[in-house]
């Protein structure tokens, strides 16, 4: 299987505190990957670096076949290359409708002048509907995103990710604030998405990770502590020590 993303010994320091410490990680071009770790392990910071929000002090982030280095590129440029991101705190555009949120995310030309002249095509509308159906918000297309429940906002943001049609989805704590039934729906969504692309999920909830049924990477103090199946990593004494044992 080919590697889509390769993080090569990155480090980042915030005010003398090493949030990411010589981290290396490779993500295959299809399938799920879960990243777990205690609070402050550097999971979100890892996503910040990959998506261009934070610049690492050292190291490279290599993307795709050609091994293009993403470090130093703008957030928008990285997103256009095919990296989509869902934030830990759901961030949708609350003043706009669900349909408008999805429509904005659709894979369409992004340059200011092209955007200026863009028209919403029939194909766009069909796609928005299909995604809304998939995330269970079809009946809510015309509602303001701000009126949605917390779980629905999470789905909307996942839907926006799907609309972008990225090669890699980085999903930060998708199940936070969801009911059990909603969590199951979310697991299904992510599993389906992972059939054709790479999906990286950061999650605290062990049951949720178990249901994802995929390779797990444990982060601790900004570096990889263990990697393998969930059963494998949960049996690792180091992991039990720093994370599960508490």
């Amino acid at each position: 299987m080919t590697t889509l993303l390769e993080v090569d010994s990155i480090s980042v320091t915030f005010d003398g505190f090493k949030a990411i410490n010589d981290l290396s990680l490779a993500i295959a071009s299809t399938g799920l990957r879960a990243i777990i770790g205690p609070n402050g392990a550097g999971k979100t910071t890892f996503m910040d670096i990959v998506t261009g929000k934070t610049r690492p002090d050292r190291g490279r982030v290599l993307w795709g076949e050609g091994g293009m280095n993403l470090v130093g590129l703008s957030e928008a440029r990285i997103a256009r290359l095919g990296l989509g991101r869902k934030f830990q705190r759901p961030t949708v555009f609350e003043a706009q409708s669900v349909a408008e949120n999805l429509d904005m995310a659709l894979k369409n030309p992004r340059q200011p002048l092209r955007l200026l002249l863009a028209r919403r095509t029939a194909a766009d509308r069909v796609r928005v509907e299909a995604i809304a159906e998939e995330i269970g918000l079809r009946a809510h297309l015309t509602r303001r995103a701000g009126e949605l429940s917390h779980g629905q906002k999470q789905w909307l943001e996942i839907g926006m990710l799907l609309a972008q049609d990225p090669k890699l989805l980085l999903v930060d704590e998708p199940a936070a604030g969801m009911t059990v039934a909603e969590r199951e729906h979310t697991t299904d969504l992510l599993k389906r998405a992972a059939r054709t692309r790479a999906v990286v999920v950061v999650e605290h909830d062990m049951e949720f990770v178990r249901r994802l049924d995929c390779r797990v990477t444990v982060l601790h103090e900004g570096r990889v502590l263990a990697e393998g199946s969930l059963d494998h990593v949960t049996a690792d004494p180091n992991v039990i020590d720093v994370y599960l044992g508490r």
Binding site: T51, K53, S74, E75, A76, A79, R80, G84, R85, F87, T91, F93, E94, A95, Q96, E100, D103, M104, A105, N108, R110, Q111, P112, L115, L116, A118, R119, R120, M160, Q164
Partner: peptide, 26 residues
């Protein structure tokens, strides 16, 4: 339309718009 949507989105959360791939500065 979509351009208005993006313009208002920039007002509300320009950082998020960047992660959608739009050139906010432009």
């Amino acid at each position: 339309g979509r351009r208005g949507s993006v313009i208002r989105a920039i007002r509300d959360d320009e950082a998020r718009v960047r992660f959608l791939g739009y050139g906010v500065e432009g």
